[in-house]
Design a protein around this nucleic acid. Sequence first.
DNA 1: AACATAATATGATTTTTGTCATGTGTGTTA
DNA 2: TAACACACATGACAAAAATCATATTATGTT
Lengths: 144, 144
Amino acid sequence: MIFSKSTEYAIRATMFLCLNSSGNECFKINTIASAIDSPPFFTSKILQTLVRQNIISSTKGPNGGFYVDKKSKPIILYDLIIAVEGPDFFDKCLLGLSTCTEKNPCPLHKDFKKHKEELKQLFKKKSVSDIMTENNNGKINLKI
Amino acid sequence: MIFSKSTEYAIRATMFLCLNSSGNECFKINTIASAIDSPPFFTSKILQTLVRQNIISSTKGPNGGFYVDKKSKPIILYDLIIAVEGPDFFDKCLLGLSTCTEKNPCPLHKDFKKHKEELKQLFKKKSVSDIMTENNNGKINLKI
DNA sequence: AACATAATATGATTTTTGTCATGTGTGTTA
DNA sequence: TAACACACATGACAAAAATCATATTATGTT
């Protein structure tokens, strides 16, 4: 609805990693992609940008793959989202106006501001691990 | 942020029409497009789909153009949005899962539901004219 | 040394966005 | 009333961006 496919894949893949990593094990891209029903090569590219931005980690070679470092700080959803969508994602104007500011707002600015801020805060306060433990009852749904 | 360019243009153009129509006057596409800083031919196509869906009106010939019928029922933002984005726009899964339902939710479903519903209600209760009168103080900002 | 896997670069496909040419109806005017 | 001009309607086309696929390279493991 509001995210690009790239971001959808990024979130679902990271969720898969957080869900299945008890220690520091790796998952190769084919395992991840088939677990979340995504195109492997495309997903691989997205995960590589996450690695470059230190959101997740990877190692090459046999038994290599992508992983999350359980010991390092948790992955905040907001950071994950803007890593793919760009840093100003949550500050864009609803009507696409670059001139839209607090002083010179677009007609929808006032009405939308509250909701935008709430959404931003939701994603800022929740980590991917938080989400996974919240959903710990029953099977986790990550497939199309 | 959450809308396509098509929807952005549709909303801005409709706002322009509501703002400038006291009686039943017409505005040709070049007037509209330059008022909202949008590509004229592309905008024209979008407005034509709005006409087909009875959201706005149009007439051909000299002094023709697009217009809003002030006497008919107000244009609800929700209707305008789904006229362009499609009827299921506000019901799509955040993670892009078609299997995501209340019984079988995606991991973000519960957290996002409230916000999605609030957004939906916001757009359902406001008409374009409402928005324009709300912003009646100062110049209305519809340009890029 | 052989192999497995991510990293990188390149290209193909699809969707979105934007342009152009022509058709169609409406009003004006001679 | 017939010719003409005007503006939307329609469909074909073009460009750009997003999505997806392939081939090659680099790197770490065994």
